[in-house]
Amino acid sequence: HYVEVNGKKIQATSAEEAEKIAKKFAKIYNATVLDLGNYYKVT
C-alpha cells in the first residue's frame, strides 16, 4: 500500500495507514483523495 502525492510515492504498512496519510496530505494541499484500489492518489 502506498500514497502518491505530487508524483512521489509514500509507502504505508496498511490500507488504513495509507488512507490516513492520503487524507492528511489532501487536507494540507486542499486536494482530493482518489482510492485506486491498491493505492491512494492525492490530486
Rank of each mutant, 00 (worst) to 15 (best):
Val3Trp: 02
Glu4Thr: 05
Glu4Arg: 03
Glu4Gly: 00
Glu4Tyr: 08
Val5Met: 06
Asn6Thr: 03
Asn6Gly: 10
Asn6Leu: 14
Gly7Lys: 04
Gly7Ser: 04
Gly7Met: 03
Gly7Thr: 02
Lys8Gln: 12
Lys8Cys: 14
Lys9Ser: 05
Lys9Met: 12
Lys9Ile: 15
Lys9His: 10
Ile10Ser: 02
Ile10Pro: 01
Ile10Asn: 00
Ile10Glu: 01
Ile10Leu: 08
Ile10Gln: 01
Ile10Phe: 10
Ile10Gly: 01
Gln11Val: 13
Gln11Asn: 12
Ala12Thr: 12
Ala12Pro: 02
Thr13Gly: 14
Ser14Thr: 11
Ser14Ile: 05
Ala15Asn: 09
Ala15Glu: 05
Ala15Trp: 12
Glu16Ile: 10
Glu16Tyr: 11
Glu16Gly: 09
Glu17Pro: 00
Glu17Trp: 07
Glu17Cys: 13
Glu17Gln: 10
Glu17Ile: 08
Ala18Val: 02
Ala18Trp: 01
Ala18Ile: 03
Ala18Asp: 00
Glu19Val: 08
Lys20Trp: 11
Ile21Ala: 01
Ile21Asp: 00
Ile21Gly: 00
Ala22Thr: 02
Ala22Glu: 01
Lys23Pro: 00
Lys24Pro: 00
Lys24Gly: 09
Lys24Gln: 13
Lys24Trp: 15
Lys24Phe: 15
Phe25Met: 09
Ala26Met: 06
Ala26Cys: 02
Lys27Glu: 15
Lys27Trp: 13
Ile28Thr: 07
Ile28Ala: 10
Ile28Asn: 07
Ile28Gly: 04
Tyr29Trp: 10
Tyr29Leu: 12
Asn30Pro: 01
Asn30His: 12
Asn30Phe: 07
Asn30Val: 04
Ala31Asn: 03
Thr32Met: 10
Thr32Gln: 13
Thr32Arg: 07
Thr32Asn: 09
Val33Gln: 01
Val33Cys: 06
Val33Arg: 00
Val33Asn: 00
Val33Lys: 01
Val33Phe: 07
Leu34Trp: 08
Asp35Met: 13
Leu36Trp: 04
Leu36Asp: 04
Gly37Tyr: 06
Gly37Met: 05
Asn38Glu: 11
Asn38Gln: 08
Asn38His: 14
Tyr39Asp: 03
Tyr39Pro: 00
Tyr40Pro: 03
Tyr40Asp: 03
Tyr40Ala: 02
Tyr40Ile: 08
Lys41Val: 15
Lys41Asn: 04
Lys41Ile: 15
Lys41Leu: 14
Val42Asn: 02
Val42Gln: 02
Val42Trp: 03
Thr43Met: 11
Thr43Ser: 10
Thr43Gly: 08
Thr43Val: 15
Thr43Pro: 04
